[in-house]
Write a protein that binds this DNA or RNA. Structure first.
Lengths: 157, 157
DNA sequence: ACACTTGAGTTGCGAATGCAACGATGAGAG
DNA sequence: CTCTCATCGTTGCATTCGCAACTCAAGTGT
């Protein structure tokens, strides 16, 4: 029971800190698992595919630099390279070199890509609603939004 | 088009819902990445190793059924099987068959395992504090704890 | 005793991931 | 102009993951 913790950045966590941290990590793991399960059960591609297709679908012109995709979905570049190649192989995306920047590659979503995303959406949305949204009221959702936003803010230099 | 969907739970999300969902997922991805980076930069093993060692270290007797580990760290059984084999190969864990249940296997943490966990802790804790805990006050941490707890509650029918 | 179902853990194999090294282009300094 | 340096994307290789099929032990019913 000793509260030695008076010095703020001691090596030791309060129970609440521990619980909040593991809770956050496990909750998200649980949610991802649930969504992936739902997609798989419906014979649909895995989540990262959806993420990328969504980013492209809502991007102006339906295309983004691989670079930018990487930044948005938080996957490493090499990951995006290969994912985009797989997507292209399935005809969901076209990879077109950037004329202004010789080393850039645009991923451009195809009609088939938009179609697939639309087809995945109901499954995705149902899973998220069932396991996440349905458990909270409007205010709590807003609270979560505000709290989570703080984590990635001012990630800085 | 038509909102045949019965009522409020239409297929469409409010901005806050979208933002809260992606915020949660991205925040956690961001945090995991940060921790993994920190571990790697210090030449330490990846996060799942820590998770398992931590669960074992704090478990009474320093051992758990593979089953139970799987449940706690939210990794699939086959994953735990192989992870525990790798840990055993590194001398961090001993896998000992359960006498009462012929098909059970206990993972039992070794002194070396406890030592490694202790060595990983400062790096782990620093990363989490820097990227997560330091951004919130006591009340917010408690709030996050309460909110995240709700997600995994009453999952079972 | 018998088959039947469930549960724990393992394994083969193909796919995805992580890491580091690499080639190529653009940007800046002198 | 040329040299260096940072950025973008790719690739080889090893590790890990995902899935389905499998073994063996427990539990259940007859």
């Amino acid at each position: 029971m000793k509260k030695k913790t008076g010095g703020k950045s001691a090596n030791v966590w309060t129970d609440t800190e521990t619980s909040a941290w593991t809770g956050l990590v496990r909750a998200q793991q649980y949610l991802i698992n649930a969504v992936e399960d739902a997609l798989r059960e419906n014979g649909l591609p895995p989540l990262p595919w959806y993420d990328v297709l969504w980013e492209l679908d809502r991007a102006p012109g339906g295309s983004l630099r691989l670079n930018e995709i990487s930044r948005r979905v938080l996957l490493d570049k090499y990951n995006i390279t290969r994912l985009s190649q797989r997507l292209e192989q399935e005809g969901l995306v076209r990879r077109v070199p950037c004329t202004q920047d010789g080393r850039g590659i645009f991923a451009h979503i195809t009609p088939g890509g938009r179609r697939l995303r639309k087809k995945m959406w109901p499954v995705y949305e149902r899973a998220v609603r069932e396991h996440f949204l349905s458990k909270f009221g409007k205010e709590d959702i807003a609270r979560i939004d505000r709290l989570m936003r703080r984590i990635r803010d001012e990630s800085g230099p």
